[in-house]
């Protein structure tokens, strides 16, 4: 078996008395399609923030391609192949779709620091940007400002920016969140078309999507891993059902 691209060992984080990550361990190998599920407030997004380096862990180790990146800056981790998307659109709303993806491409190609080179003279960056947009079927919107796009298309831009970084490890935070189910197939197709060698970790609520996409599933409850396994195993686990049903029961005001 190949070495993991991303490995998390015993990751801990607490805000005061609130524990949001409790000895979390995970490993993603090349080609991994891994889903992270759990009730609201389980610490899924915090885990992504810990891995990408926006939140500093209280304990544990994060390895990226075999390097210990626990103390690395977010930018440095990105340069080593780690990319993410956001649950809530985090886009350059006042720029065109093409400019959005080119932003990531120039960062990756390390030309973003150059003062004297014209942005539009970089035909290769733009060509790559258009190619990328074609691959996610956004090329028709290349000229439009992001803020003028419908929400579903914006979710695609969210994904495209991350792909512009050509990551080896991609963290998707609920890629289809807020997209009407009639439109979500475009997003799911884009997710399914991701390069095979890429290791993908996806936070998702919708169990249908999880079953369709994931080879492995990790269930997070109150910051700790409840179980990990193949989708069918996890789906049949009574503890997992209890977590989800319990939540539902509470939502409907049944218990307590």
């Amino acid at each position: 078996m190949s070495e993991p691209l991303l490995e998390v060992r015993n990751l801990c984080k607490s805000f005061g008395a609130l524990v949001v990550a409790d000895e979390v361990s995970l490993a993603l190998r090349p080609g991994a399609r891994h889903a992270l599920i759990g009730p609201n407030g389980a610490g899924k997004t915090t885990l992504v923030n810990l891995i990408t380096g926006t939140v500093e862990p209280s304990g544990g180790v994060i390895l990226l391609g075999g390097h210990d990146v626990t103390r690395w800056s977010q930018a440095r981790r990105v340069k080593h192949g780690l990319a993410r998307t956001f649950q809530i659109n985090t886009l350059f709303r006042g720029l065109s779709v093409l400019e959005n993806v080119c932003m990531a491409i120039s960062e990756r190609r390390a030309v973003a620091a150059k003062l004297w080179q014209r942005a539009d003279a970089r035909a290769d960056v733009i060509a790559e940007g258009m190619e990328l947009l074609e691959s996610v079927k956004l090329d028709g919107d290349a000229r439009r400002l992001v803020r003028e796009l419908p929400y579903g298309r914006q979710r695609l831009v969210e994904l495209a920016i991350a792909l512009g970084l050509r990551p080896t490890v991609l963290l998707l935070d609920e890629p289809a969140a807020g997209v009407p189910s009639a439109e979500s197939h475009v997003l799911l197709e884009a997710v399914e078309a991701l390069p095979e060698s890429m290791a993908v970790l996806m936070i998702e609520h919708d169990m249908d999507i999880v079953f369709r996409f994931a080879q492995r599933v990790t269930v997070l409850v109150q910051g700790a891993i409840l179980t990990e396994g193949a989708p069918a195993e996890v789906g049949g686990d009574p503890r997992v059902q209890e977590v989800y049903l319990g939540e539902n029961a509470e939502l409907h005001g049944g218990r307590r």
């Binding site: 981790r77 990319a83 886009l91 350059f92 720029l95 620091a113 150059k114 080179q117 014209r118 960056v125």
Partner: peptide
């Protein structure tokens, strides 16, 4: 008009995302 200028525009538009793309 340079890539640097474009990068500044990105910071203005969404600093958080700029961090996230390295």
């Amino acid at each position: 008009g340079s890539s640097f200028g474009q990068s500044l525009r990105g910071i203005r538009e969404n600093e958080r995302r700029m961090h996230a793309i390295g």
